[in-house]
Amino acid sequence: MGSFKGHALPGTLFLLVGVWHIWSAVVRYTSNPKTFRVRVWNPVPGFDGRLKYLELYVIAFGSFIDMCIELLYSTHLKFFVDGVLNPSHMNDFEHSGMLLMFFIFSAVSLISEKTRFLPLPEGALCLNAATAFSAEYLLFYFHSTSHKGLEGYYHLILVFLVGLCILSAVAGALLPTSFPVDLCSGIAITLQGIWFYQTAFVLYGPMMPEGCRLNDNNISCHAIESEVRGELLANVQLFIEVFGVLVAVVVSYGFAASRYENSDLKSMQTMQDGLVQH
């Protein structure tokens, strides 16, 4: 089982990183499409370079704080019972492992960018990110907590979105100059963050479907019809969120093109228009 805060906190991190990734990819492409390269993280410009690595620090500190909450606070330091891992907190241990992978990703990226000890190419960093997402995927797919019914359906959609993050990260390593791949990566991360929030509001907040309720840490529905209605509602919510993100991407691209567009992008669009006409 989970909680509202347990879903809202990681949702906030994924949403912030995803939105920043989308905007950065759009700006970099519209500014100079010929030199565009996929980036697994994006520096913050200005401020004399003092905030350049802000994204990586947000991931590092956010995952570390959340990991401490899961490992130290949620378990009450009761790690072992009768010489084995405490079975009552296996989900907290699993969450901690997932968060550790994202902390390692941010730490490795910082070491690679700021020092000469681990000069990894961008493709390797993409695969490092894919590894962290893979750990998250395995956690939610083979969770020790039994997700059934409506709760299971919401987590199944989350697993699907995490899978998209894995594929886009791997594709970034294989297609290092592809703007669609970099954009898809940001979209997938953003949708994952939004769906964490959606799960929090539906299962642990005020948006519980009619006929279902949270009782003794379990989601129960009075009838199968109520559960099916809740699953159909989840499909509608996912469609609205995908549509909303795509509209936001189009709007942001239009704004960035009007502000940062250069002659290279205009010439590429003219050539494409000419090919379509012929």
Rank of each mutant, 00 (worst) to 15 (best):
L138I: 12
F105D: 06
Q198W: 00
A169L: 10
L203W: 03
L54P: 01
T177F: 08
F61A: 13
L72C: 11
F201C: 07
I224M: 02
E113D: 15
Y53K: 03
V236T: 14
A171N: 06
L127G: 08
H147N: 02
V250L: 13
V228M: 07
H21K: 06
V228D: 03
I189P: 01
I189Y: 00
D264F: 11
E241C: 12
G46E: 09
M207V: 05
V250D: 06
F4G: 05
S3Q: 03
L118A: 09
L85D: 05
N42A: 12
H147M: 09
C212W: 01
G49C: 14
A188D: 02
V181T: 13
S109L: 11
K52V: 11
N32M: 04
E113P: 02
N128V: 11
I224F: 01
V26A: 09
S220Q: 13
M101E: 01
H147V: 08
F102A: 10
Y204G: 00
L156H: 01
N215Q: 14
G244A: 15
L203Q: 03
V242N: 03
E94G: 06
D182N: 15
N215S: 13
G274P: 05
F243M: 13
D66V: 12
G123N: 06
F239R: 02
F243E: 09
V250H: 02
S63P: 07
C126I: 09
Y57R: 04
G172D: 10
D216W: 05
Y57A: 11
R37S: 13
L51Y: 08
V181Y: 05
R116I: 11
H147F: 15
V251F: 10
L127M: 15
V84K: 08
E225Q: 14
V58L: 15
A8E: 09
L161F: 02
G97K: 03
G2F: 07
M90H: 04
A200N: 02
L16H: 04
P87I: 12
N91A: 12
E113I: 10
D92G: 00
G6R: 02
A200S: 10
E151L: 08
W23Q: 06
V228I: 14
T199C: 01
V19Q: 00
S168D: 09
I69L: 13
K148T: 14
F142D: 03
Q269S: 08
F196G: 00
V27H: 00
M271P: 00
G186S: 10
M1Q: 07
